[in-house]
């Protein structure tokens, strides 16, 4: 399979990709401040798309992520993580799977944490075939109290515990290579 990895930091441009037979596309995006962008992928047959998108919502933004599955035996995975620091972030995540297609698998997993902002997730599956495996999840909440308590029982202040949880929430999606590029951990240490 031909693999293409796109690593983007603080991306403010819309993206569009078309995948053909035996192509794999991994898009990693970390935005320190979300911008309103559109991301569109179109898959024909035997292709693989993974979109890992995380960052902070600091201003009113709308992100549209659209996956179109036209053929057979494709995989589409969207992992989205947002921390709403202020204002309002909207994420419209839609995957369409065409009729008369088979053996496709699509997953949308959106998670958000609210600080002083708000989030609205719209994970939409438009499925026109019964021969598909499709799942979508959307959760929005606060930092888990149990995890905060656990870290504090080690003598870690609430502020530092939140930093740790923030980092794991946003970056657990990414591989080491991209994490090096982001350099977020080092900034925090400094």
């Amino acid at each position: 399979m031909d693999k293409k990895v796109v690593n983007l930091i603080d991306n403010d441009e819309s993206l569009e990709y078309v995948l053909n037979d035996n192509e794999m596309l991994i898009i990693n995006i970390f935005n320190n401040s979300f911008k309103s962008v559109d991301i569109k992928t179109t898959q024909n047959n035997n292709s693989y798309v993974v979109i890992n998108f995380s960052g902070f919502a600091r201003s009113d933004t709308t992100i549209n992520i659209n996956g179109n599955v036209l053929g057979n035996n494709n995989h589409y995975i969207l992992n989205f993580r947002a921390i709403a620091l202020e204002n309002h972030g909207t994420v419209n995540a839609k995957v369409s799977v065409n009729e008369n297609t088979k053996d496709n698998e699509v997953v949308e997993d959106l998670k958000g944490i609210l600080e002083d902002g708000t989030l609205n997730f719209m994970p939409i599956l438009e499925i026109d075939t019964s021969e598909v495996k499709a799942e979508h999840y959307a959760t929005i909440g606060h930092y888990p109290l149990e995890e905060l308590f656990y870290l504090q029982t080690k003598g870690i202040s609430k502020e530092e515990a939140i930093k740790i949880l923030k980092k794991s929430f946003l970056f657990n999606l990414f591989d080491k290579e991209f994490l090096k590029q982001i350099n977020y951990g080092k900034e925090q240490d400094e």
Binding site: E147, K154, I156, E160, K167, S168, F169, N172
Partner: peptide, 12 residues
């Protein structure tokens, strides 16, 4: 805790 290593907890 996913994404948080023992090393990170102890160093912090």
């Amino acid at each position: 805790i996913e994404g948080v290593t023992n090393m990170e907890v102890l160093r912090t």
